[in-house]
């Protein structure tokens, strides 16, 4: 079973929920797909036996000797990743979507696709959890190749820590999910972006449920009221507490030390399993 944890708004507690959820599941895999700022690995604090592998995407390489200046590749590229100057194509790597179309369309075989490094994937173990993190190179425009590589490590019960927002990187991250946990907080901003990802997971037809984090004021029913309108219940509520904040700030997992919190995450897992049936 693959459980994706997403939120729309950043800072609602995706990483808090996904790291602790992976921690209480036996022989789980934790996959950090928030590759622009992966921080889940901080909580699985074990640098022993760390394995790193480079991630590549393909870019066209143009052989000037073979190029006859026919412009077929430039006209084919719908992203304008190639311009035509002085009778030869000029490549804009950050615009290129690595589709390989220019290589196929070139009549003289002047274009070949070559590997271009865009980041790394790093794997280690924390107790019985396999911890996988994608790290995108700074300045790289697309996170998709790194996310896609991270997802190749899916094994046993996997918890996928998704990037914030509802754009391509989030869609890529939930591609293999059997269930989506939508983490939110009782704020107007939290609700606004929550609605966007509800729309997204409904589009993907993936079963989903809500986790309400940072619960403080029982009179604040902003999220509860909304959840009713989509005929759902909140799976678990996590209190706004100093102890949790301290644990997060010190880079440790609350389910390692706090029995009540461990039970709460066990409840979450049971409800997710039910939701998948």
């Amino acid at each position: 079973m693959n459980i994706a944890v997403l939120s729309g708004k950043g800072g609602t507690g995706k990483t808090f929920v996904s790291t602790n959820l992976a921690n209480i599941i036996e022989s789980s895999t934790y996959l950090d797909c928030d590759v622009e700022e992966p921080n889940g690995r901080i909580f699985f604090n074990n640098t022993d036996g760390i394995k790193k592998e480079e991630v590549f995407r393909l870019l066209p390489s143009i052989d000037k000797e073979k190029c006859i200046g026919c412009r077929a590749c430039v006209d084919f590229c719908r992203f304008s990743g190639l311009a035509f100057l002085g009778n030869a194509p000029m490549l804009f790597p950050e615009i290129c979507h690595s589709c390989g179309g220019c290589e196929k369309i070139c009549p003289t075989g002047a274009i070949t696709e070559v590997d271009f490094n865009v980041g790394i994937v790093q794997i280690n173990k924390y107790k019985d959890t396999k911890v996988v993190s994608g790290l995108l190179n700074i300045g790289e425009a697309s996170s998709i190749p790194v996310i896609s590589r991270v997802l190749e490590e899916i094994e046993n019960t996997s918890v996928i820590d998704c990037p914030p927002g509802s754009a391509c990187s989030t869609m890529e991250s939930i591609k293999r999910a059997d269930y989506c946990v939508l983490v939110t907080e009782p704020t107007v901003f939290g609700l606004h972006n929550l609605k966007m990802i509800v729309e997204l997971v409904q589009l993907f037809k993936i079963p989903f449920g809500f986790v309400l984090n940072k619960v403080e004021d029982p009179k604040n029913t902003l999220i509860e009221d909304y959840v009713k309108t989509v005929n759902k219940d909140i799976l678990i509520k996590i209190p706004f507490s100093k102890e949790i904040a301290n644990k997060v700030a010190s880079g440790t997992l609350i389910t390692d030390t706090n029995k009540d919190m461990k039970d709460l995450f066990e409840t979450l897992l049971v409800k997710i399993q039910k939701g998948c049936e």
Partner: peptide, 19 residues
């Protein structure tokens, strides 16, 4: 022609001028 391009609008516009 690049006005509503999904990406690379600057490149495409510049190409129009060059052509």
């Amino acid at each position: 022609p690049a006005r509503n391009a999904s990406g690379g609008a600057g490149i495409k516009s510049a190409q129009t001028l060059v052509d």
